[in-house]
Simulated assay, not measured.
Amino acid sequence: MTKVFIELSEIDVNTTRFIDTRFNLADSKAGFDLFQDGHVEGAVYWDLEKDLSNMEDVQGRHPMISKEKMTELVQSAGLSLDDQIVIYDQGAVPFSLRAYFLLEWAGFKNVKVLRQGFEEIKKALPISKNVTYYDKTRVVPSWNDNILLNMDDVREVVKGNKKGQLIDARAAARFRGEIEPIDPIAGHIPTAINFDWEQLKQGSTFLDKDSLTAKLSELTNKKKPVIAYCGSGVTAAPLYATLKEAGYEDVKLYVGSYSDWIRENEIETSI
């Protein structure tokens, strides 16, 4: 099983690089404001929409960034492939796990996400308002492209030409097509099953490994490829990561997700 989450008690602040990914979908400036008010000492800030998404692309509401942009991001943060990296956000939200996925895609092997949010973090780790600047590195990512699917890949899964179980991380009512508060068409990608990502957390903390495993183990065959998606590709990231922690052997993410799929494809409903 892959270990995704880390506990505060397991962290050595002297050997760890921290990434702060706090964000608010309703107020895109709020995360950086919080960072300026105080963050783990030495942390850099990555913004969901400025750094971790390509908002100029049309492939969904939070499209995938390019390899060039990801390379610039990790180099500007002064990171190396063998760094011990810990990512955090306000707690039990998807932003740190989006960064986790991108770093895994780029070939970083020692990346963990704090199970707790910032209110707990600041009780245990040194906090500062000072921004730390790092020398730019020349790190070259070692791309792990097989964890990332695009629309064409998902079409092949839906048609049965490629193995894989699509898992929709949205609320059940959205999956069934009963409501759709954001996208213009209600429903889900054909052949998908549903698991609401909100079940993965309690308050501002993600569930422990045993609880996650118990909730996720019976979704489908653990040896079968599983593909997480959601509305825009953001809340699929917690499902992607927790499926790995629950012992699934081949986990992928469709970053474009439902908002990308409906541009060109038929949907299903369960009404």
Score class of each variant (00 low, 15 high):
172 A>W: 15
26 A>I: 02
146 N>E: 09
122 K>Y: 00
196 D>H: 07
71 T>P: 02
111 V>R: 06
153 D>M: 01
179 I>T: 10
203 G>C: 05
52 L>F: 05
265 N>Y: 09
223 K>H: 10
46 W>T: 11
168 D>G: 11
49 E>H: 13
257 S>A: 06
198 E>K: 12
106 A>E: 05
200 L>T: 02
148 L>I: 03
160 G>A: 04
39 H>K: 10
51 D>W: 12
157 V>D: 12
98 R>C: 01
237 A>G: 15
79 L>G: 03
76 S>C: 07
263 R>N: 08
45 Y>D: 03
222 K>M: 11
195 F>M: 02
158 V>G: 07
107 G>Q: 09
85 I>L: 13
263 R>L: 13
13 V>C: 09
149 L>G: 00
39 H>V: 06
35 F>R: 00
18 F>P: 12
150 N>L: 07
47 D>I: 09
262 I>G: 06
226 V>M: 01
4 V>T: 07
79 L>T: 02
139 V>P: 06
23 F>I: 11
37 D>I: 11
62 H>S: 02
112 K>I: 02
54 N>T: 15
231 G>I: 02
36 Q>V: 13
127 I>V: 10
121 I>V: 13
52 L>D: 01
185 I>F: 09
147 I>Q: 13
260 D>P: 02
1 M>I: 03
68 E>K: 14
45 Y>N: 04
95 F>R: 05
92 A>C: 02
19 I>H: 04
134 Y>Q: 01
153 D>F: 04
29 K>E: 08
149 L>N: 01
231 G>T: 05
33 D>Y: 10
105 W>E: 09
23 F>P: 10
174 R>M: 10
97 L>D: 05
259 S>Y: 14
56 E>V: 14
149 L>V: 06
242 T>E: 09
97 L>I: 08
177 G>Y: 13
136 K>W: 04
44 V>I: 08
242 T>L: 04
231 G>M: 03
242 T>C: 11
109 K>V: 07
242 T>V: 04
116 Q>A: 14
39 H>P: 05
154 V>H: 15
72 E>V: 06
245 E>L: 08
186 A>D: 14
22 R>A: 06
133 Y>A: 03
109 K>D: 15
183 D>H: 01
91 G>L: 08
122 K>W: 01
46 W>F: 15
28 S>I: 11
137 T>D: 05
184 P>N: 05
220 T>H: 07
160 G>N: 13
167 I>D: 04
135 D>S: 09
59 Q>W: 14
141 P>R: 11
128 S>H: 13
92 A>D: 01
220 T>L: 05
246 A>T: 04
264 E>G: 07
256 G>I: 14
264 E>V: 03
24 N>Y: 03
262 I>W: 04
104 E>K: 13
71 T>Q: 09
98 R>P: 00
110 N>H: 12
258 Y>Q: 00
